[in-house]
Simulated assay, not measured.
Amino acid sequence: MLGADDAVTAALVTRGWPSRPLVDQPLGIDLLNTRWVAGGVAYDLLDHDDLTEAWLADRELESARPVPRQQLREARDAVAAVIADPADCAAVNALLGHGRVRLTVDERGRVEHDDVADPRWRAAWACLHDYVRLRAATPDRLRKCANPDCVLHFQDTSRTGRRLWCSMTGCGNRFKARRHHSRSRANS
């Protein structure tokens, strides 16, 4: 279940790492948030087989052997590039070539099946497919945190659609406090 970070949390505790922020994001954005910064230290789940496997298990994504860390990294980098520049679609499009959606019909109506031949690409392709779905539904609401020191991304679900920060209590307050401190020093 997305948002349940049980296996990842247990693996992070074992390593002595801090918990992951923003685990409530859709799959296509959650992939981006497999790396984060806490206390000035960078963390990346995709640098370790056990953490990658835990993330895949929590997201109910099939793992492969070897653990598809490189494929997930490529997908993560491609999605981050498109969020930074919506016209930069080449990498996402190339990676989407690893699979396709096969449509069928049953008694409930339309059914989509992910058809990915190479098992090492299944999880990464599922993340890319979800990102494409999100981009079609809410293209102007997929963002990187406005704090230049933050690497997190989010889907803005606010009523106004003007959310800037991954967390107002974290990045928003820190950024505003730094700006206030800079103005105060400039006026002194």
Results as ranks from 00 to 15, higher is better:
residue 26 P to Q: 11
residue 148 P to A: 09
residue 95 L to M: 11
residue 85 D to R: 03
residue 119 P to S: 05
residue 154 F to L: 06
residue 153 H to V: 08
residue 164 L to W: 02
residue 86 P to C: 09
residue 70 Q to V: 14
residue 185 R to E: 10
residue 175 F to H: 15
residue 88 D to L: 05
residue 171 C to L: 07
residue 166 C to V: 05
residue 117 A to K: 09
residue 12 L to A: 08
residue 89 C to Q: 15
residue 97 G to N: 06
residue 145 C to E: 03
residue 171 C to D: 05
residue 34 T to F: 12
residue 168 M to G: 14
residue 115 D to S: 13
residue 99 G to I: 09
residue 30 D to P: 12
residue 6 D to E: 14
residue 92 V to I: 09
residue 82 V to Q: 10
residue 89 C to M: 15
residue 2 L to W: 11
residue 43 Y to H: 15
residue 87 A to T: 14
residue 155 Q to K: 13
residue 150 C to I: 01
residue 186 A to F: 10
residue 29 I to Q: 01
residue 70 Q to H: 10
residue 159 R to Q: 12
residue 79 V to R: 00
residue 89 C to P: 01
residue 117 A to W: 09
residue 16 G to V: 00
residue 69 R to Q: 08
residue 110 R to P: 04
residue 32 L to W: 01
residue 154 F to Q: 00
residue 119 P to M: 06
residue 170 G to C: 07
residue 161 G to P: 05
residue 99 G to T: 04
residue 186 A to W: 02
residue 115 D to V: 05
residue 59 R to V: 04
residue 103 L to Q: 09
residue 115 D to Y: 01
residue 69 R to V: 01
residue 112 E to V: 12
residue 92 V to W: 03
residue 42 A to I: 05
residue 121 W to I: 03
residue 49 D to G: 03
residue 115 D to C: 03
residue 169 T to I: 08
residue 7 A to Y: 13
residue 117 A to Q: 13
residue 175 F to I: 11
residue 133 R to T: 12
residue 146 A to G: 13
residue 7 A to R: 10
residue 80 A to L: 03
residue 143 R to V: 00
residue 162 R to P: 06
residue 12 L to R: 15
residue 126 A to W: 04
residue 51 L to P: 03
residue 69 R to Y: 06
residue 114 D to Y: 14
residue 106 D to A: 10
residue 64 A to C: 11
residue 146 A to H: 11
residue 179 R to Q: 15
residue 42 A to M: 12
residue 73 R to V: 10
residue 48 H to K: 04
residue 137 A to K: 08
residue 91 A to H: 02
residue 5 D to S: 14
residue 37 V to A: 04
residue 93 N to F: 02
residue 151 V to Q: 08
residue 77 D to I: 08
residue 1 M to T: 15
residue 156 D to V: 06
residue 56 L to K: 02
residue 134 L to M: 08
residue 172 G to L: 00
residue 147 N to M: 00
residue 141 R to N: 01
residue 65 R to W: 12
residue 138 T to S: 07
residue 67 V to H: 09
residue 91 A to R: 11
residue 111 V to Q: 12
residue 85 D to I: 06
residue 65 R to C: 06
residue 147 N to V: 00
residue 164 L to T: 01
residue 156 D to H: 08
residue 12 L to Y: 12
residue 132 V to L: 09
residue 138 T to H: 13
residue 187 N to K: 15
residue 178 R to Q: 12
residue 55 W to R: 11
residue 92 V to H: 06
residue 71 Q to N: 07
residue 102 R to H: 13
residue 88 D to E: 12
residue 15 R to T: 06
residue 134 L to N: 03
residue 13 V to H: 10
residue 44 D to M: 05
residue 101 V to Q: 13
residue 94 A to C: 03
residue 10 A to T: 10
residue 46 L to I: 02
residue 2 L to T: 14
residue 141 R to W: 00
residue 138 T to K: 05
residue 188 S to C: 13
residue 12 L to F: 09
residue 83 I to Q: 04
residue 87 A to R: 14
residue 135 R to Q: 14
residue 80 A to T: 10
residue 147 N to P: 02
residue 61 L to K: 02
residue 177 A to N: 11
residue 70 Q to P: 07
residue 120 R to I: 09
residue 11 A to V: 03
residue 120 R to C: 10
